[in-house]
Design a protein around this nucleic acid. Structure first.
Lengths: 260, 260
DNA sequence: TAACACTGTTACTATTATAGTAACGAAGGA
DNA sequence: TCCTTCGTTACTATAATAGTAACAGTGTTA
């Protein structure tokens, strides 16, 4: 067992949480050995942790097949946590209101290191449906991502730009560092970013960063997502640039308040 | 430290999860001492566990005030878990479809021991809004609760009935065991249960149990929730009894399949 | 100003909970 | 039929944790 230098850190808890985190939309059932392998924990320890989760109701085990899945307590846990996320409740009414006024799909994300995390999304009834990722590391391909990049620390930005190749989602996805950098600088100057079918075919988006005005750090971004069949880059900007930056500003004030 | 007889149980994990679970809608910020007191863990151990959660990003700590709140990882974690809950994805399309056809608010709950857990809820645009609890122990006051009670083991049912007094939410809430028992038997015979403004003023509901046909055990319930201003008990039954039992039956088949 | 009652944090150590090896029966596939 | 892989259990050295105590910092009260 690797010796952890930090006395005030519980590796057991870390492992238990990593096990729970292995259950997602595409992996709702797992076996013990699978968990042990993926989590990098030996079988007996895995058994103890899994057994704990089963006894607590976070996992449920099929008596015959021994297959594991999330249990009712996990569902409650998930709901409780999301509802306990303060920022969500502060952001929600603003986005709902803007959605009501503009009738567009509005997306909001938080940035955690180099990844975007889904915060809250309000869909316009007409928008084509696409499955939004909960966590996304492809900042280059999204309006929210470019908005975040435009306000990142120089160091973090360079670190992101360095991790080429950029994954290509559509023909429009930007996969060249220099073009991306140019767009990021443009976004920084204008205050908003554009995604022209670079992430999902038929979806054109305009995004703006969320800033903590006190620390000057970027905490996330929002975007208005629209059908590419009805908007060009120009019409998108002329129609929504003002509103998206206004909303981002309002939310940024909340974020600043909230984090102080 | 209490000695746990079970070698294959991790008290550390249990404690860590209980700490995370302390953050909910009404308690989005907590202090270390508060957590230690509520979780019944001594301060140093709490500090270690909290510190772990902070380092992992599940909690974030205000550098000045030291106040703790849920961090971005917790949000992702919650989303991931909910999306990983298989039954939710099986139930959702059925409820959405029924919602589309009937244009009513449909609620679904799971039963875990003696408590109802929110599974999925689809609101009709017209329905008056009320904040749905994530976990509810007051089975006597809800249509889903009475539906569950109507198919519970004799022993569990008696245990529930014994835990009077029943909390009174509205003037209509049933707080007498004999009347409740009578309604439960009626629900068992008819296959559906009624909630006539017993939980929330202005809300009248009809519910039906979800059964695992293989094990014959009740796993939850669904309900159609309607404005009391527009329906009487009689009109509710004549309009929706067939549809609610049909939907419950369809979902029960899914549940049965899913759990085998 | 001073005493006080809280915080959160750290050092230290006995004890216990855990990691990891090994072995087992059961189930499934080749 | 063998063979693999599964989950489960027993066992033990060792590392992680529990709990005590003490500390500094902050805000409150006197």
């Amino acid at each position: 067992m690797a010796s952890d230098p930090n006395v005030y850190f519980s590796t057991t808890l870390e492992k238990g949480l990593s096990i729970l985190g292995l259950f997602d939309k595409d992996h709702s059932r797992r076996t013990l050995s699978e968990i042990a392998r993926l989590a990098g924990i030996n079988k007996t320890s895995t058994y103890r942790l899994v057994n704990t989760l089963v006894l607590l109701g976070f996992l449920s085990k099929n008596p015959r097949s021994k297959a594991l899945r999330l249990g009712p307590k996990a569902l409650l846990f998930g709901h409780t946590i999301i509802q306990g996320y303060e920022l969500l409740h502060m952001v929600k009414p603003l986005i709902d209101e803007a959605h009501r006024l503009c009738n567009v799909t509005i997306d909001s994300t938080l940035v955690d290191g180099q990844t975007l995390l889904a915060l809250y999304r309000r869909e316009a009834s007409s928008t084509l449906f696409f499955r939004q990722p909960l966590a996304c590391e492809d900042l280059h391909a999204r309006a929210t991502g470019k908005a975040v990049l435009s306000r990142m620390d120089q160091g973090d930005l360079e670190r992101y730009l360095a991790k080429a190749p950029y994954k290509k989602f559509t023909p429009n996805t930007i996969d060249q560092a220099d073009i991306l950098l140019q767009q990021i600088e443009e976004a920084r100057n204008r205050g908003y970013s554009i995604n022209n079918e670079e992430y999902f075919q038929g979806l054109i988006c305009i995004g703006a960063p969320l800033i903590n005005f006190q620390t000057k750090k970027v905490t996330g971004a929002i975007s208005f997502d629209l059908p590419a069949s009805e908007y060009t880059t120009e019409s998108l900007i002329s129609t929504y640039a003002g509103q998206v930056t206004k909303l981002a500003n309002d939310i940024s004030e909340l974020v600043t308040m909230n984090e102080s």
